[in-house]
């Protein structure tokens, strides 16, 4: 790659600054009191206080909700990646009756606006007794995460030469043994990237998550919406909670940064 000049660096710095400003504003708000926030513009907190964070850490509703959110996101990520792996392999390596239609049908599930299907989802999960459990949300999020996972993984599978499959077959590997022992390590990079995307889309979605839960499995975002109504807007508390919602995602991206930096063109290069 050619060396980066001065101009691109300045451009990048400006972009990163613009990206961070709203986030800085959120952090700024979380350290100020409500009266202070509403009273006027202030570029930094004059009397910073971590009070709002301690309030959240000491309140069992908030702590429990944070655990719930992490649980269903984790379950969803594991299910999505696990079932998408063999499917991505099949779509890339074989032709079969209806393959192209099936692939596009999977993608169409990404195009169903959650706002429309929230009520039917509620009916469905209520009927089968999963309402208000982490499983309801984890399964519901499969609707859009599995297609995304198949889509991304298919790209990674296409980067692995088919000769490897053939050599393994000649060497007497059965399909499951080949798939787990040889193939999965080859696309470990792709699994990491896919898991990141599944984590992200499940973590930020909250319309379905809120509709499918009541008290036991209330997600973090739903607890946030509750503090809207109680005694007006508690901006400072909302901001503190908002800052906390960024942490798990930041941790996950830190773990997959090498996979992204290693690069993937999704296909033969």
């Amino acid at each position: 790659m050619t060396r980066t000049g001065v101009l691109p660096r300045i451009g990048l710095a400006i972009y990163l600054l613009a990206l961070m400003l709203p986030i800085y504003w959120l952090v700024n708000m979380s350290l100020r009191s409500n009266e202070d926030i509403m009273s006027g513009l202030s570029l930094w907190p004059h009397h910073p206080s971590l009070g709002r964070y301690f309030f959240i850490f000491n309140d069992s509703t908030w702590v429990h909700a944070f655990g719930v959110s992490l649980t269903y996101v984790a379950i969803n990520t594991v299910i999505s990646v696990t079932v998408a792996l063999p499917a991505a392999y099949a779509f890339n390596r074989y032709r079969f009756v209806g393959d192209k239609h099936l692939f596009f049908w999977l993608l169409t599930n990404l195009m169903a606006p959650a706002s429309v299907y929230a009520m039917p989802f509620f009916n469905l999960y209520y009927a089968i007794g999963l309402f208000d459990t982490v499983w309801a949300v984890a399964l519901a999020h499969c609707l859009f995460n599995i297609p995304v996972a198949v889509w991304i993984l298919e790209g990674f599978v296409s980067g692995v030469p088919r000769e490897i499959d053939e050599t393994a077959a000649i060497d007497g590997y059965s399909f499951p043994r080949f798939f787990i022992r040889i193939f999965l390590p080859l696309i470990a990079n792709g699994i990491g990237v896919t898991a990141f995307f599944c984590f992200m889309f499940s973590w930020v979605e909250q319309l379905l998550a809120t509709t499918l839960t009541a008290t036991n499995a209330l997600p973090f975002a739903a607890v946030m919406t509750r503090s809207y109504s109680a005694a007006g807007m508690d901006w400072s508390l909302l901001a503190a909670a908002g800052v906390l919602t960024m942490i798990p995602g930041a941790v996950v991206i830190w773990f997959v940064r090498h996979h992204i930096a290693k690069g993937f063109a999704l296909g033969r290069v």
């Binding site: 992200m200 930020v204 979605e205 975002a221 908002g242 919602t245 960024m246 798990p248 995602g249 930041a250």
Partner: peptide
């Protein structure tokens, strides 16, 4: 760069 994407939409 990834931070904005990882914030729940209502936040």
């Amino acid at each position: 760069i990834a931070l904005p994407m990882l914030i729940p939409w209502n936040v």
